[in-house]
């Protein structure tokens, strides 16, 4: 199939950016979106132009490296699908496709379609863990976890940290990412001891990098893993409780 690409090119974080137009001709419909970019890149290189930089690795929707705005939509037109899992048969012959990096103050552009998402790591470092030093764990079956809790924790833990939620949000808020991790840990018995401390630290760190949530809900639609916006409600509840609660009573729940 034959398409036209309008691609954001930017040489570095502080360099000015601009759209460039490239033909994408003779693309097999079974190619993935990133394979289409590979083909375009190989042709650019043969013609003496520098290839388009973009992050990617696993190409099966799990590492969270990939992610671009396709016609203004994070990860493109297919719901629940990361950019690397999108196939060209989703597009029509002759389409013009606009490809841009995530746009968010918390995600500065590194080059072309590549952004710096290290703020996500800072949020995890603030408290996105259960403190258990190696070797100190009890036998795994000594901590029974109700199946429903384990399943709900897993639903939240499925987040791949791609940043589509931030890119989709008109406020560039990172609520869905932060809530997914908080809910994963806060739902489990193992996560109770640090629940309040973790919630406050992660939310405060999030706010130092990202905008505030005003309940647009765009994040949920953009999430390639279908993380529910309900996690944000749980996070807000835990945050409020943590701000007000007496941490000495945490052991009672």
């Amino acid at each position: 199939m034959n398409l036209t690409l309008r691609v954001w090119r930017q040489a570095g974080a502080d360099a000015p950016g601009r759209f460039e137009t490239y033909p994408a001709e003779g693309i097999p419909p079974e190619a993935s979106f990133l394979e289409m970019l590979d083909i375009v890149n190989e042709r650019l290189e043969r013609n003496g132009a520098e290839p388009i930089a973009f992050d990617h690795d696993c190409r099966e929707g799990i590492c969270g490296s990939c992610g671009v705005m396709i016609d203004g939509v994070p990860h493109g037109p297919q719901l629940g699908t990361a950019t690397c899992q999108l196939h060209m048969r989703r597009f029509d012959e002759g389409d013009t496709v606009v490809v841009e990096p995530w746009r968010a103050a918390g995600f500065p552009v590194v080059r072309d379609l590549m952004v710096d998402r290290s703020a996500f790591d800072r949020i995890i470092e603030a408290g996105g863990y259960i403190s258990v030093s190696t070797g100190s764990a009890p036998d795994a079956n000594e901590i029974p976890v109700p199946k429903d809790a384990a399943d709900a924790a897993m639903d939240a833990a499925a987040c791949i940290g791609c940043g589509a939620c931030v890119a989709a949000c008109p406020n560039s808020a990172a609520q869905l990412f932060t809530a997914a991790k908080l809910v994963h840990l806060n739902l489990l018995p193992q996560g109770q001891a640090e629940r309040d401390r973790r919630t406050v630290a992660m939310v405060d760190t999030m706010e130092s990098f990202f905008g505030s949530c005003t309940n647009h809900g765009e994040c949920e639609t953009a999430c390639p893993k279908g993380i529910s916006i309900d996690t944000i409600a749980l996070m807000n509840r835990d945050y409020l409780k943590a701000r007000l609660s007496d941490r000495r009573l945490l052991g009672r729940s």
Partner: peptide, 10 residues
């Protein structure tokens, strides 16, 4: 397994 379960591995 003990370690990973204690860390909250779902």
């Amino acid at each position: 397994i003990d370690q990973c379960a204690a860390q909250g591995g779902p």
